[in-house]
Each structure stands twice: as C-alpha cells, then as structure tokens.
Design a binder for these strands. Structure first.
Length: 928
RNA sequence: GGGCGAAUAGCUCAGUUGGUUAGAGCGCCUGCCUUACACGCAGGAAGUCGGGGGUUCGAGUCCCUCUUCGCCCACCA
C-alpha cells in the first residue's frame, strides 16, 4: 500500500480516537501486582490545570513530558495509569466570573452567594474542561475514564475527611493574627500566594518628639500611612542610644497622642535609626511585638486598603484629610502633612520587596483577622525524613535543597479564604451552646447543633484551593476509602511539574501523603524548565509573548511539537522558543516527522507489504555485513535509550512492600528525555536511513533470497526504531507501524504500537560482528565522497571502471583494509576515485562486492591531493606523539584505570597503522 | 542579606561519576530536484568550552576567584 506524500496531521484525532476506543489508555486495577495481578503499576497523576484554563505552552511541556514517560512505561509492560483532571481553582475562577459580572455592572455581592455559585458552576460546565480536550490533541494518553475534578462530590468528601482528621489531631486551629490580604480579591492569602517583587520605594525618617521633655527620636518607615495605627515605638534594649528612653513616651506626630517606647529584640540597632514604629494591626512582625507587650491593635486601614477606622480604634485615629483615601494616596498626604509640621527629617529612596497577590498582582495588605491554619511543622518532618532516606528523589537534584530549605523553615498555613468558590470550611457554629461546644467540625452537613439541637450556621469561608490539591494523588484514587485504585496504584510513581509550584503543591502533597497514608505519594519528582522567548522572558499571556500549542498542532501536527519540545529540553532546563517564527522554531520536529514518514514510504514502496521472516530465523551466514551492522546499531540504540530513561522504579521498590528506596547510585539516573530523542534520531536517520537503507536498494531491486533478508532486516530495525520513538511521536509512529509488513514479534502483539512492547537489546541475536561495517563507512565511502566533492566530480559521471574488491568487504583486519586503501590510492595517481552517489554505494556493498571508481583523470590535481594528505599526516603524527608520550608516562600507566590504558594502547596501534597507510599513500602519490 | 542556576560553533542547546581528535538541530558555504524524502542528499567552514588561578598523568567536567545574566528564599521597619 502506498502512503501519501506527507503525513496528514489532520488524521491525528482519528488515531487518537482509535486508541481510546481500544482502551489503550485505560488502567485495570486488578492487573496491578499490588492487587494480585501480574504487572507492576506505574502511575502519574497530572498536575490538574485550572478548570477554565486554555492550554498554553507550559501545559504542553508538562503534558508531553508525562506522556513520554507514560507511553514508555506502558510499552514496558507496566499497568500504566495517567490520571487526568482539573482544579476548580478558587480565586482564579472566581476572578473570571467576577470580571464577567463587572462587565454587567454588578458585583458578586449584588447577585448573592447562591446565585454566584450557580453562575460559576454554569460557567465551568460551559467552558471548563477545554484543556482536557486540548490535551487529547497533543496526544496525551491519559485514562479519561478516571478524569477527576477537585470540586467533585468524591474529592470534596476527601477534603472534608482531611480537614476533620487534621482537626481531630490538633493540627488545624483558628488563629487571630495579621495575614496577607488581597484588597481586590477580598480574601486572605497564604505566604506562598503573596509573592515578593522588588519595587522602588522610600524610607521616611520621621521625628517623634519625646513627651514632656526635650529632644526626639527618629523612626524610619517605608509605609508612613500606617503610623496612624502606631501604638508604640520599639528600640533594642542593648542599644545604648535609646536605653534611657525605654518606658517613657513619645508623641505620635499628626495625631499628637502619646505612645510608649518599649524594648524588643525585633528592633535592630543596625537598621535605619534603630527605632521601629509598632503598628500591630497592619504588620505581621509588629503584631508579634504587640502580642508580646500586650499592646492595643487599632485598625486604620479597611479591607479595601482604604484609610478608615476599624476595630480597636481607641481615639479618632484617622483624620479627615486622609479619611476614605487609599493607602497610596494617604502615603502622599501623610508625607505632605509631616513636612508641614516639620516632622519629616528626610526621605531616602530604597528598593524593597513588596508582596503582591499571585492571582491579580494587587499589592497585598497585612490585615488583622481570624483565619484557619494548619500546623505544618509536624507534617514537614516525615516529608524531610522521606527525602533523606531516599524514599523520594527530585530531579534535577539541586531542587532537593530548595525543598529541604522550605520544609525546615516552614510556617503555619493559612487555609481559609474569604471567597465563595471553593470547599466551604466544614465547621458549624452554634449560638446557643457555650464554649467549648460552640464550634463543630463535621464530615457531613449539619443543620442543627449536635449538642443542643439549635440551628447552626456554617463558617462563611472556603478552603484554599491548594487544600484540595495537596490530596490529589490520594483523593483521585478514592481516598479516604480503601478503594481498588488506592490499593492498585497508590503510591504513584512520578510527579512531573515545574519548579514554581514546589511549595504550593509538590512538597505539600508529600506532607499529606505521609500524614494520611504514611507514605510518600511518589518516588520521583521530575521538574522541567519553563518556556521562554528569545529574550529569555518567561512566556505568559500578560507579556503577549505566548505561543499557542494548538496553533502549532494545527500547523505542523502534535508530533512535530512534541519532538521539538522533547529534543530541545535538557533535564530541568528552560527551553527557548521564538513565538514570532514558528516555522524555524518547529522545523526540527516537522522535518523529523517528515523524514520518518518518508522512510516508511520507501519501505512500503520498495519492500512491499508482504510478510517478512523474523530476523532471528534468518540462517546464520546469510546476513550481509550491512545487515549485521544495522542490527548491532539497533542494539546500541536500545541500550542508550534505556540508559537515557533510567529505571522505572527504584530497584528496591517491591510492588507489595511499603518501603521504597533509591540507592545513591541510581538516584540521579534517567529521565533524560532529550537523550532518548537524540539517540533514536541518530539511529533512524543517520544510521538506518542514511546508511542501511541506501545500502540495500540494489539488493531489494535484485530480488531473490538476499532481497528477502534485506527486507526482513529493514522491517525489523525500523519496527525497533518506531518503538523507541513512539513515546515522543506517538501519532506518526503509530500510523506508520500500522502499515508495516507482518512478521516476527509484531504479529503476536496487539493492533497498536501504543501497547506494543518496548524493544530489548539482543532480542534477535548477537550482531557485534556488524561493527566492522563502521570501518567500511569510515575508511572508504567517506574518503570517496570527500574526494568527489573536493574535485567537483559531476554527479552524472558514469563509473568507468569497476574494481573487484570483494575481499575487502568480507574481511576486516587492519592489514587487509590497508591493502585496499593502498590500492585505491594507487588508482588515485591516475584516476581520482570519487564516490558515487549513495545509489551507487548500494551496489558497492551488495553481494557483488564492487566499489565504483570514477574516471576523471583530467581533473586530477596531484599537488592539491598531496598537500591534503601531508597535512593529515602531520596532524596525525602530532596526536600520535602525544599519545606515545602519555603511554610512556609511568604515572599515567600506573594511575589511570586499566581499561583507559588499554583503550589508549589500542588507539596507539590503530593510529600507528593509519600513519603507515598515510605514509604509503604520500609515497605512492607524491613520489616521496 | 543568603542560596541556586546559566555562560560551550552565528543562533538554540547536549555533554551522567574527570579519560579517544568537544557533539546535535537550525543557520552559513559548495555541489546536487539521484526513481522515499529539497521539510531532502553529499561535502565543508566554524568553538583559546565567560576571564584568571589551582588540583591531577589528564579538566568543558573538580576546587578557588572575578565578570555578566537569570531565578528562588528572607520579618530588616
């Protein structure tokens, strides 16, 4: 059957549907060895994208990486599960819907909580999940029968269970403190959600007069507007400048009220003036100081970051001239006012880190409020121990330090959000009960108080989105139930993600895994890099430098994109792509896919589709040297691909055991997808297509038994190549594989390459002998081609003479090759041998054992050829003398490993021979 | 203020525990539309591996230092 000229990428979706219909991606829990089956499980849970997200390049990178691993594991015969799903994405989704409302001139408060939730649900039902369809388009071989959603009833149940368990063990508590508050989103944020960025600001030096005395002290602050909430100034007790002031009062400018000077180690004598103003309600550190000294905590900034009096305001602390102004306006007004009353000593400009909301980039306001927290230190310990014990590894390994550092300094996690879209906190309050019965944590909804029967009301807040995400590897498999999937697939194997969510997600999942199941949820964390543009900027929607993966799929096909991404990205390294030149950026992948397709076209057109004999059944001795060579190269490629991907599991991981441990020497092995790409490419293109395929053209045309052998070897090796390539380019490899002639292993397997077996080295025999073909390639063909190009031999020149060199191709000793080389050199004296085009080379290595030599006597430039040969000889002699020096150096021979020395000795012999050959050549051609 | 990463051919990047003459893709030059492939074939040019020291028989690889970029963390007002 003839294939079309090009791989029609518009057929990719059809192929995908066929895989799905054949259940290629559906995992069977009962086949897992953990559930009594006969296949080791291999599981990856997808980092769930936001339910309303559209696929961007980051997702594509993440998805393709996982898919390569998943497809590889599947071919390795594992019971493979890639569990897909989405995240309800509390703040992000709520923001989108709020924006829609804003466009209609409404706020969420206008529509009310219930209506807002209905609307958001409808919005998610309508637009959500787009990204999952897009993942199909890039070939993601996920098990869609298990698609999960963090806000589904099942996962919501897991969330409540987790909350309840943590609460019951005293690890969840309600705290009153200063937290990060986003005035736009109107919610608190965790430390991780409030991201730092450096901004130009100023340090204001403000004079506080000493009450009832002379003199003043100077306070430095970057946020003068908060002085309205000052209740004290702090100095360090060890600071001699201020020691005698401790216990006295100073006068807070503008408000003209007296506040005490207190001693606290928080004041750093080295920084600024050594005096710190204390605003307990609007700064997390000041809050701690305030608690230590039992200070009042007047609120002067409201939830919208406006200057307004709030709780604990003992006097009218917000004067009319700033009342109702934003903090930024207020900063200016206060500054002006301080200047007027002569209290502003100076301002110095300074860059400082300002926290921003990670969702809307609004400057975060520290705010005093009641929130729910998770006590993290007890959870962090097993996660640290697990990594140290080798139960888990992070690749690239340098990120392990980041993980450890964060866990060691971990702080309690604020998990309550003042949002509507999310898991409502499963706490009910009873008005009629006295403490401690006023608060009830429940796994089921409560309508009445379990103690007094009074009506109860549920906590208004919802949980941080990440509180559901951190359960993902368990909740998606059925936890808290002892489900079939939990048994069969938990713990999972690899987690693939970007390093930007180590804290948000990766580390927290490990903590949850240990706390709720006693085990790490995965043994390997693979962190890939990010996509950047040619200026090194991270690709993002806001910068407008994004690159739409769907556009790439449309233009070049999913495989071309996958190939470009995989082959272009080293372990953990960022990838640079040019969003303005897609043709150039994806040329690598597009060209490769086309090449693969064309090899298949050749195979089907020239070798036909009749069944071939299994290579292992070909009688010994009937294989040509080139056959053995390509079979040997396939084995080499298989070994290199296996090394690139490394072990599927730690060697010490027993499917049914609770202990998993990476040995130190295997801990950094594998996961080098770009090496897989490079090796497979080299094999199929540089070796199979460029050399082997060219060499058998004549044999195929000649027909007969030898043609059958060539066909069998061609089909076998191309089949092997397709298997190695399939994880990276699933579509084209599958499409081509479907057309391959029947024969050998393929016949016994299923209908899909997607579920065919990963090739094994040496499966068809031992072809080490094929190595000698390398010598032919290097010694003769290349030399011919070079000379031909150098002397500009017209390609159409007909071979004038055929020289019988059959023995050259049936022997491989150095001496015999030397003889052949000399023969050709002698000929060069009168007739320069130019290489034939590849087609002719084919004839050279067929059974005829002929080499074509072109007669171009008139073009011979003996001087030029002599110069070239002499140069080569000089260079070789130079290298040889270095080698001789090394080998006569006793230090080298005694200290270097034996195999290195042996290799050098072998090289010496080889080079010496080559030197002799070159000398002979020079002698013959140039007359000495 | 700490920590991490990057610096290798014009461009984008590989180079696993130190060990042949440092590789690939794209681009470039020469010649080819050779009956699978011009998204291709053959040949070629191109790198003092950021600078400087050091360890070693041997350094792109290990140590120190400097320079330039990038990232993360941190309660310094």
């Amino acid at each position: 059957m003839a294939l079309p000229d090009r791989f029609d990428t518009s057929t990719e979706p059809e192929l995908y549907e066929r895989w799905v219909e054949a259940n290629c991606f559906t995992a069977d829990a009962s086949r897992s060895t953990r559930a009594g089956g006969d296949r080791d499980p291999f599981t990856i849970v997808i980092p769930p994208p936001n339910v309303t997200a559209i696929l961007h390049l980051g997702h594509a990178l993440d998805g393709v990486t996982q898919d390569v691993l998943i497809r590889w594991a599947r071919m390795r015969g594992q019971e493979t599960l890639w569990l897909p799903g989405t995240d309800h994405a509390g703040i992000a989704t709520q923001n989108v819907v709020e924006k829609q409302l804003a466009a209609e001139g409404k706020t969420r408060v206008d529509v009310g909580r219930d209506a807002f939730l209905k609307r958001t649900e409808a919005f998610v039902a309508d637009t959500g999940g787009t990204i999952l369809k897009q993942l199909r388009a890039i070939g993601a071989s996920a098990d869609w029968t298990r698609t999960a959603y963090t806000f589904s009833p099942e996962l919501s149940r897991a969330v409540r269970e987790a909350f309840a368990q943590l609460y019951e063990k005293g690890l969840i508590y309600r705290g009153h403190r200063v937290i990060h508050w986003c005035p736009r989103c109107q919610t608190s944020l965790s430390d991780e959600e409030a991201e730092f960025s450096d901004e130009d600001g100023a340090l204001f030096h403000i004079t506080y007069r000493i009450a009832g005395g002379d003199g003043h002290i100077t306070v430095a602050t970057s946020r003068p507007e908060t002085m309205l909430g000052d209740v004290a100034v702090a100095v360090n007790a060890k600071d001699p400048r201020y020691a005698k002031l401790i216990g006295t009062n100073v006068i807070l400018p503008i408000l003209n009220i007296e506040i005490p000077v207190i001693a606290d180690d928080y004041a750093d004598p080295e920084f600024g003036t050594g005096v710190v103003k204390i605003t307990p309600a609007h700064d997390a550190n000041d809050f701690e100081v305030g608690k230590r000294h039992n200070l009042a905590m007047p609120v002067v900034i409201d939830q919208y970051a406006m200057m307004n009096p709030g709780a604990n305001t003992d006097v009218q602390r917000v004067p009319a001239f700033v009342l109702g102004k934003s903090t930024t306006e207020a900063r200016d007004l206060i500054k002006r006012s301080l200047k007027e009353i002569g209290a502003l000593e100076k301002t110095e400009s300074k860059r400082h880190a300002v926290r921003h909301c990670y969702r809307c980039d609004t400057v975060v306001e520290p705010r005093l409020s009641d929130q729910w927290f998770v006590k993290m230190a007890p959870l962090a310990k097993p996660a640290l121990d697990g990594l140290r014990a080798g139960a888990m590894r992070i690749l690239p390994q340098r990120w392990e330090a980041v993980y450890v550092n964060w866990l060691e300094g971990i702080r309690d996690w604020n998990i309550s959000r003042q949002l509507w879209w999310g898991h409502r906190i499963p706490v009910w309050y009873c008005k009629d009960c006295d403490p401690p019965y006023d608060m009830h944590v429940s796994r089921t909804d409560l309508t009445m108080c379990p103690h007094c029967g009074s009506p109860v009301r549920q906590d208004e807040d919802v949980l941080d989105t990440w509180f559901s995400s951190w359960l993902w590897p368990m909740s998606t498999l059925g936890w808290p139930d002892d489900s079939k999937d939990m048994k069969a697939f938990y713990p999972t194997d690899v987690l693939v993600s970007g390093p930007d969510i180590i804290f948000f997600w990766v580390a927290r999942m490990v903590m949850a895994g240990y706390f709720f199941t006693g085990r790490s949820p995965y043994h390997t964390v693979l962190l890939h890099g990010m996509a950047r543009d040619t200026e090194g900027r991270k690709m993002s929607k806001s910068l407008g430098n994004g690159l739409d993966p769907m556009q790439v799929v449309k233009l070049y096909g999913a495989d071309a994109m996958r190939w470009t991404l995989v082959s272009g990205m080293g372990l953990g390294a960022d990838i640079t792509l040019d969003p303005n030149d897609l043709d150039k950026t994806f040329a690598t992948g597009r060209n490769f896919v086309t090449k693969l397709w064309n090899i298949a076209r050749f195979l089907l057109e020239k070798a036909g589709s009749a069944p071939v004999m299994p290579v292992a059944e070909i009688p010994k001795g009937t294989l040509q040297r080139a056959d053995e060579w390509i079979l040997w190269r396939l084995d080499v490629a298989i070994a290199e691909c296996d090394a690139a991907l490394g072990p599927l599991h730690p060697a010490k991981a027993l499917a049914t055991s609770d202990t998993v441990q990476w040995a130190p020497d295997e801990r950094v092995n594998g996961m080098r997808l770009n090496d897989l790409a490079e090796t497979a490419r080299r094999f199929v293109w540089s070796e199979l297509a460029d050399w082997y395929l060219e060499s058998i053209k004549g044999r195929l045309e000649a027909g007969g038994d030898d043609a059958e052998i060539a066909r069998a070897v061609l089909v076998h090796t191309f089949d092997g190549a397709l298997r190695l390539l399939h994880p990276i380019v699933p579509f084209v490899s599958e499409a081509v594989w479907q057309q391959l002639p029947e024969g050998g292993r393929r016949k016994e397997e299923g209908r899909f390459l997607a579920t065919a077996r990963w090739p094994e080295k040496g499966s068809a025999g031992n072809y080490e002998k094929g190595k000698s073909f390398d010598r032919i390639e290097a010694e003769f063909v290349k030399a011919f081609r070079q000379m031909k190009a150098e002397y500009a031999v017209p390609p159409a020149t007909e071979p004038e003479a055929w020289i019988k060199l059959g023995d050259i191709f049936t022997v491989s000793t150095d001496a015999e090759i030397a003889t052949a080389t000399a023969t050709i050199s002698r000929l060069a004296r009168v007739k320069i041998p130019g290489s034939p085009p590849q087609r002719d080379f084919v004839q050279a290595v067929t059974a005829s054992g002929h080499v074509a030599v072109l007669a171009i006597g008139g073009l011979v430039d003996i001087d030029k050829e002599c110069a070239r040969l002499t140069g080569e000889l000089t260079s070789l002699e130079k290298q040889l003398s270095g080698l001789e020096g090394r080998l006569s150096n006793e230090k080298f021979t005694s200290k270097a490993p034996a195999d290195v020395v042996a290799a050098e000795r072998a090289k010496l012999a080889e080079w010496t021979t080559r030197r002799q050959q070159l000398r002979d050549k020079v002698q013959t051609l140039c007359g000495g």
